[in-house]
């Protein structure tokens, strides 16, 4: 996993609520056996009108829209557990998702892949939408070390929460498997001490 400490970037706005993982990456693109290349089909059915014609109304196809931060409505990432959704967002180039609410499994998947979910209040989210709408060049700063989101133009300087363990992993580029493998003696001892279920 790549390390993440701090990011300055413009924001891409997706003001929809309940963006589900079937929209992020439709099932018919889940046939790959590696983690790469899913970015091409990110938001496929919103991004294209048919097999190859880009939908000019969709935000990712609009000229001048760029940035590594995606800002989306409440309950982002609901639906299927497909980690492909996190891979697709990351592969496309996003490193941070800002929303007022994240679905549980998506949040875990994102954190396991170096994609930082930043949860803000509905008010702050609305402010971001408004400011970036007026000025797409608005810059946001995400500082993981300090757990801070700063968007000067919007008058936002907010703390966000992330548990210490996950923060440590992201800053150091560690993943959970390394951690668990180090616990294998403890796991074996646990197995020795129980019998009911196994």
């Amino acid at each position: 996993m790549e390390k993440f400490t701090q990011l300055f970037s413009k924001c891409v706005l997706l003001p929809e609520e309940n963006v589900d993982t079937d929209q992020i990456i439709p099932a018919r693109f889940l046939k790959a056996v590696s983690r790469e290349g899913f970015g091409d089909n990110l938001f496929r059915d919103w991004r294209y009108l048919d097999e190859s014609t880009p939908n000019p109304d969709f935000v990712l196809n609009q000229p001048g829209v760029e940035g590594q931060i995606l800002v989306a409505g409440r309950n982002f990432g609901c639906g299927s557990s497909r980690e492909h959704a996190a891979w697709a967002l990351y592969d496309y180039g996003f490193r941070v998702i800002i929303s007022s609410f994240f679905a549980d499994i998506f949040k875990n998947n994102a954190l396991n892949n170096g994609l930082l979910p930043v949860q803000v209040s509905d008010d702050v989210l609305a402010k971001i939408f408004k400011t970036v709408n007026n000025d797409p060049a608005t810059l946001a700063e995400v500082n993981l070390e300090e757990e801070r989101l700063v968007i000067e133009k919007a008058g936002i300087s907010e703390n966000f929460e992330i548990n210490n363990y996950k923060k440590y992993c992201m800053i150091n580029g560690f993943d959970d498997i390394d951690f668990l493998i180090n616990k294998s003696e403890e796991i074996k001892a646990y197995e020795q001490n129980r019998e009911l279920v196994i």
């Binding site: 557990s81 499994i105 998947n109 396991n112 959970d176 498997i177 493998i181």
Partner: peptide, 12 residues
């Protein structure tokens, strides 16, 4: 669970 977690379970 997601695929990274599938890997965790397979591994540990």
């Amino acid at each position: 669970i997601g695929t990274s977690e599938v890997e965790q379970v397979l591994a540990t």
